[in-house]
């Protein structure tokens, strides 16, 4: 009894630095020990706090999967949507209330597997979304199935003899689809990732950050890659930072070099910029844009 009281007191005194941004009543979270998703949540929360943006105007949208649960742990307006549809849902949210900072945090299977079509179109439109994609090379929530990012030769539960399909190189996909900001980091690059997210928060358009994350329970186990700590050692030894690298040269092969860095940072007109400019040109005074706070109808 005494011990329990003491421990409660201790936890009250030692609050997690990101606690104000987290739904602490929902902790412990669902993620496995040494999963990389928590690292990304921490980096995002830190970046948000540092950025000085009005947190009341920040929405987080996730799809389905392990990374899909991120929206549920952040103390922000959070939307845990359907599999693959985080980007179109977020598109509606942004266009409905243009003043919002809308972040999409989800996984590789969600955003570029089932949601791949939405991904290329959101990038093409350069819609104002900050997209953080946590890439663990596998479908984790459903038990280790092959993903569109699984490197060739890597084993998954649906490629038990090793993957023979060619995976996506996500920075290349994002850049060639029109993203205005493209970066890749691993879960080891905590400071660089945090800085990159903070930088992207202050930019406009479709901003894409891929984070290579360990999945010790499935990807590492099926491929005999050891523990989460081994994954960190692997990132330390094989990740190289080459900012402005040609996005055609960013393929990831099984257990080989991972090129990290910021590859694209070019401001170009967003969907809303183009729409406002075009309608102003075409319609002049007749154009009535959706107000920043949204086109809602309610009794004042």
């Amino acid at each position: 009894m005494t011990v329990a009281t003491k421990s409660t007191t201790a936890s009250q005194e030692l609050e997690h630095p990101s606690a104000p941004l987290l739904r602490m009543e929902r902790i412990p979270h669902v993620w496995c020990p040494s999963c990389g998703i928590g690292t990304v949540v921490k980096c995002y929360a830190t970046a948000l706090e540092r950025s000085g943006v009005d947190l009341d105007k920040v929405s987080v949208v996730s799809g389905i999967g392990c990374s899909g649960r991120v929206a549920g742990y952040l103390k922000l307006d959070g939307f845990h949507t359907t599999h693959g549809r985080a980007l179109p849902f977020a598109t509606g949210l942004k266009l409905g209330r243009p003043e919002l900072l809308v972040t999409v945090i989800s996984g590789d299977g969600d955003l570029v597997g089932i949601g791949g079509n939405h991904f290329i179109h959101a990038a093409r439109r350069n819609i104002d979304l900050l997209v953080i994609l946590i890439n663990n090379f596998i479908y984790g929530m459903t038990g280790g199935q092959n993903a569109p990012t699984t490197p060739q030769q890597a084993r998954s539960s649906t490629m038990p003899y090793g993957n023979f399909e060619t995976p996506f190189s996500l920075p290349h996909l994002a850049a060639s689809s029109g993203a205005s900001y493209v970066a890749r980091w691993t879960c080891l690059h905590i400071r660089r990732l945090t800085w990159s997210i903070e930088e992207a928060i202050h930019k406009r358009g479709f901003r894409f950050i891929e984070v290579i994350a360990p999945c010790p329970t499935l990807y590492a186990r099926l491929n005999k890659l050891g523990t989460g700590l081994d994954a960190m050692r692997f990132y330390h030894d094989t990740a190289v930072i080459r900012n402005d690298a040609d996005t055609r040269e960013l393929d990831i092969s099984f257990q080989s070099e991972i090129t990290c860095g910021k590859f694209v940072d070019e401001e170009r007109p967003t969907f809303l910029d183009l729409m406002h400019n075009h309608y102003s040109d075409q319609l002049g005074d007749r154009y009535v844009p959706t107000p920043p706070e949204g086109g809602m109808l309610h009794e004042q």
Binding site: V61, D77, F79, T81, T82, R85, L87, P88, F89, A90, T91, G92, L93, L95, G96, R97, L100, N117, H118, H121, G294, G295, M296, L297, H298
Partner: peptide, 14 residues
């Protein structure tokens, strides 16, 4: 995507 966007936008009160 259309239906997802409509649900998203509805949460802005629109």
């Amino acid at each position: 995507a259309s239906m997802a966007a409509v649900v998203g936008a509805a949460w802005t009160g629109t």
